Simulated scan of single mutants.
Amino acid sequence: MIFANILPAHPLQGLRARIQQAKANNAEFHAKKAIYDRTFNQLSAMSNRDLADIGIRSSDIESIAAQAVEMH
């Protein structure tokens, strides 16, 4: 009965854990992508003049959207 300590209690236990982790990773990816997309789209919709008023250059939009993801 040495193998009883090595093998999981249920043969599919490891697979279930990997599937649950994959689902969690997928949900996190989509949540981060939504934050990035929303920030990017909102800033991209602004004119260069409006962006300048708030101290942003249009070339900085991608990095600002990435920073928004890191903040959450």
Rank of each mutant, 00 (worst) to 15 (best):
V69I: 05
S44R: 08
S47H: 06
R49S: 13
T39D: 05
K23D: 14
L7N: 04
H72F: 13
Q67G: 01
L15K: 09
S63D: 09
I64L: 10
Q42C: 03
A9F: 00
N26T: 14
I19D: 05
S58R: 14
A22V: 09
K32W: 00
M1E: 07
E70Y: 09
K23M: 15
N5R: 11
N26S: 15
P11H: 09
Q21R: 13
I56A: 02
S58E: 08
A65Q: 02
I19S: 06
I56T: 04
L12R: 07
N26H: 11
V69W: 00
A52Y: 01
S47F: 02
A66F: 06
Y36K: 04
L15Q: 13
Q67V: 10
A45L: 06
A27S: 10
I61S: 05
N48R: 07
D50A: 13
N25C: 08
L51Q: 00
S59T: 14
R16Q: 09
H10D: 15
D60Y: 03
N41I: 10
S47P: 03
S47T: 15
N41T: 11
Q67T: 10
S58N: 08
N41S: 13
K32P: 00
D37F: 01
K32C: 07
F29H: 02
M46T: 02
A66R: 12
L51F: 03
E70I: 11
